[in-house]
């Protein structure tokens, strides 16, 4: 039987008050239950026909993904987004290595899905955050290595398209691998900032950025 608090948290995520972030299967089921409870509020609204333009834009954006697949095939064999990295630690705390893993043309169930991760740090670095992005699923798996959270603070993960404002990804648990819903493409930045407990009060980073890096895709 889920606790009262578990229900409250699930309901708050279903309302959009909190980002979905990392969750266990039980937490996800509970959130979906609340999404079902609230769904009639949206589905009962009078229908509105969207302009044709939207459908063409959807097709164009999926075609671009298709083009990337074709380029991969043309290059033959096991072309894949393989590694990426970057390091610019904004603080002595360390640096992050970021990795793109592609599953663009493979279903998640196929055994062909493979991931490559490299953590490359300067010799004096004591910590890193590894970000693996699954472009197809729209998820980022975030794995902190040797990360400590300052007393009374929270570490918050952000992502940003080039020249765009950062979007919150979720709060970093220093002791766990977390999977977040993230739409990110190669070229996008990831960063981790120090925030008050519970996360940034403004929806934008307010504290020092301690890890920062850009997704880079490198073909074989």
């Amino acid at each position: 039987m889920p606790s009262k608090t578990a229900h409250a948290k699930a309901a708050e995520k279903a309302l959009g008050l909190d980002p979905i972030g990392a969750e266990t299967r039980a937490e996800a089921d509970l959130r979906r239950q609340w999404e079902r409870y609230f769904a009639p509020l949206g589905l009962a609204l009078p229908e509105v026909q969207p302009p044709d333009d939207v459908w063409y834009r959807i097709q164009a954006s999926l075609d671009r993904a298709e083009d990337r697949k074709t380029i991969k095939r043309m290059r033959g064999g096991l072309w894949r987004w393989r590694f990426a990295s970057l390091f610019f630690a904004a603080a002595a705390a360390g640096l992050a290595a970021f990795v793109v893993t592609s599953t663009l043309d493979t279903a998640p169930t196929e055994a062909t899905q493979r991931k490559y991760v490299a953590v490359v740090t300067p010799e004096d670095a004591t910590s890193a955050v590894i970000v693996e992005v699954d472009l197809e699923a729209g998820t980022a798996s975030i794995r902190p290595v040797g990360v400590t959270v300052p007393e009374g603070k929270t570490l918050q993960v952000w992502t940003a398209e080039p020249d765009a404002a950062p979007r919150p990804v979720g709060l970093l648990d220093p002791d766990a691998v977390q999977v977040f819903d993230v739409m990110a493409d190669p070229g996008d930045a990831f960063a981790v900032s120090v925030e008050p407990e519970g996360g940034s009060p403004t929806g934008a980073p307010t504290g020092e950025v301690v890890y920062h890096g850009t997704l880079i895709a490198v073909p074989d």
Binding site: G42, L43, L45, P46, E47, V48, Q49, P50, D53
Partner: peptide, 20 residues
């Protein structure tokens, strides 16, 4: 599905271009 879903994005965004 798009007429129902557009009603939802329009209701929340309250701005046509953002809703699209």
């Amino acid at each position: 599905g798009s007429p129902k879903l557009f009603a939802i994005t329009l209701r929340i965004c309250r701005d046509r271009s953002l809703a699209e």
